[in-house]
Design a binder for these strands. Structure first.
Lengths: 345, 345
DNA sequence: ATGAAAGCGCTAACAA
DNA sequence: TTGTTAGCGCTTTCAT
């Protein structure tokens, strides 16, 4: 058999200390029911022998492995990786390890991954982004496994989530554009039938227009799923094609920064000056957005905070602590930089 | 006890099929020693009952959990996340799940994470980047656990690695700069005492100068660890300070694109034109490098390929397949874009 | 307070 | 080929 190494087990400790294995277990798990003298003996044995509890064996018994599964769409997306970073730091501090899987926007893949993780006795799930597909989330929820949904809006208040108000945030972006006097405001997004986050941003765009008494003009709304996976490059191509058609607003709101980067490049390629001829506002505040030219005005999402908040919420539930509020909306901030200005005369 | 749910077990299948549990196990694990009729019965039972093997129980027995641990410095770094993507796709296809931990350049954290993963019976390790600190890698290696080191150069050919030739790649960058006639070539890096990858790039820079008969000028070599964690922003600050001192080369080579972004911004902030006054060459080919202004000339690392190659190599070892070559160097390509030009007259 | 023993679900050695 | 059983390392019940 493949017994690669022989770690000391609780048995070895028991023998060394001259006590029962259950006593050792009780010391390790701080049950507080072990006599002072006995505890001392165990502690000494623990000191002497390099012992580390076998998480797998423990997991088989307790059905818990101090492991959290996180399911994301695409780890390469900077928004995603920043949220993960926030989660990772909290998980580590609290003694949990992270299992990560990417679905690349494939719902079947998402289902498969969940099954795999279920097999592993993960203690909790984070769903980061992705399609509405509440069924798949529900399936986990109904098994009684703690879960938090991040950046995926769920109708059901039973299901804990950490979000921003995407609708209000995008409306804020449109309001900002309007405050400069823009009347022709385009929008760049991928499709959103199955994705509430992008849908709500779109709704925010519409609401922004409406409140500012601007008619919705489908000519300047670019909706294309080609921009989804290879965001920046894809947007560059899609927008380049769009520009050939001639319809040009004086400003664009963008579903996210990574798409805005491609939009900006396409605009520049046509010799269009930003913001003198066309203004652009992004969404997310990816770090690169401050290093492009011009620095991108954008809606900042509190990415790391979202991750940290979600993980703390999840671990509180895992550890059965009292959770005050499991439906959390975090605030966004509009970052004024240089890609928005008044429309040309 | 916290028995959250009662998955059907191999026992239930055995009862349903009217065979012994070991027979079921043999069917599931395709041992090929089960009679056709019996197998059919088991398959039918498997069909009827929603059965999924309990990985934890299996792991306790076999000391293997189809899990790979990957240890990175910082998941937010685009180079890192692209390599992970390459690894993730392969791992998933081959039926493994990924445990990910970040150390944020902290050696103690790295040690701690390794211990945690060791407790979990991971089947293999990937070390992505990080300090030389061969000891920590060795400790895993000596336990006989398969491991691959990526982007962390290891002297010991026993230890499998996937790398690029950092020295040659950076030398190639310097050669390229020289081919435009540059004689004053600066370099931007963080410290590299404990990090062979950055050290070898530095050595490549030095060798490039030497072969082109240019004296090394410490005045225009910027070495600062402040650029390590918050790369782009940090580099912007460091370089901005540097520019106040007045020494200015006609070209900069950069340890990585994310640092180049900060460098470029600092240069522009001083009104310096790229490439008319100063040329800049990066390293990595992060996707944004093509979307900044001017598009960044850079050395392309095959990031996803590195990840995929490393994971395939690792899993081959885990599965005890014959491995032809466990020391792999992948090629780099110099991408000519617009940030390099001839020096000013 | 301490110890003995059952058993989590599975694999593998051994017996039949 | 098939079935029985031990045991992976741990937690937890139940005696003592």
């Amino acid at each position: 058999m493949n017994k690669r190494f022989n770690n000391p087990s609780i048995k070895d400790i028991a023998r060394e200390a001259g006590v029962a294995i259950s006593t050792v277990s009780n010391v390790i798990n701080k049950k507080g029911i072990v006599g002072t003298e006995t505890e001392k003996k165990v502690l000494k044995a623990l000191e002497k022998i390099q012992y580390r509890p076998n998480i797998i064996a423990r997991g088989l018994r307790t059905r818990s492995t101090s492991t959290i599964a996180i399911i994301v769409q695409d780890i390469v997306n900077p928004y995603t990786s920043h949220v993960i970073k926030g989660m990772e730091e909290v998980a580590r501090k609290r003694g949990y390890t992270l299992l990560i899987a990417c679905t690349y926007y494939d719902i079947r893949e998402e289902k498969k991954q969940i099954d795999v993780f279920l097999d592993q006795f993960v203690d909790g799930f984070v769903f980061l982004g992705g399609y509405d597909n509440q069924g798949v989330v529900r399936r986990v929820y109904d098994r009684g496994i703690p879960l938090v949904s991040v950046d995926r809006e769920i109708d059901d208040p039973d299901i804990p989530y950490v979000l921003i108000d995407n609708l209000e945030a995008m409306k804020k972006a449109v309001d900002y554009l309007c405050s400069f006097g823009h009347k022709k405001i385009g929008y760049v997004t991928f499709r959103f039938e199955y994705q509430s986050t992008s849908r709500n941003r779109y709704l925010g765009y519409c609401k922004g227009l409406e409140e500012n008494h601007i008619d919705y003009d489908p000519e300047i709304v670019i909706i294309d799923d080609y921009m989804k996976l290879n965001e920046t490059e894809g947007t560059f191509e899609v927008v380049s094609k769009f520009l050939k058609k001639g319809a040009l607003p004086t400003a664009f709101a963008c579903i996210s920064d990574v798409n805005a980067f491609g939009l900006v490049k396409a605009l520049k390629a046509e010799g269009i000056k930003i913001p003198q001829e066309v203004s652009v506002i992004g969404f997310d505040n990816i770090s690169f957005s401050n290093f492009m030219e011009p620095p991108l005005t954008t809606i900042k999402q509190p990415k790391k905070l979202m991750g940290a908040t979600a993980m703390n919420l999840l671990l509180d539930m895992v550890e059965k602590k009292k959770v005050e509020n499991k439906n959390i909306k975090l605030p966004t901030v509009l970052l004024e930089r240089d890609s928005v200005g008044p429309p040309p005369k």
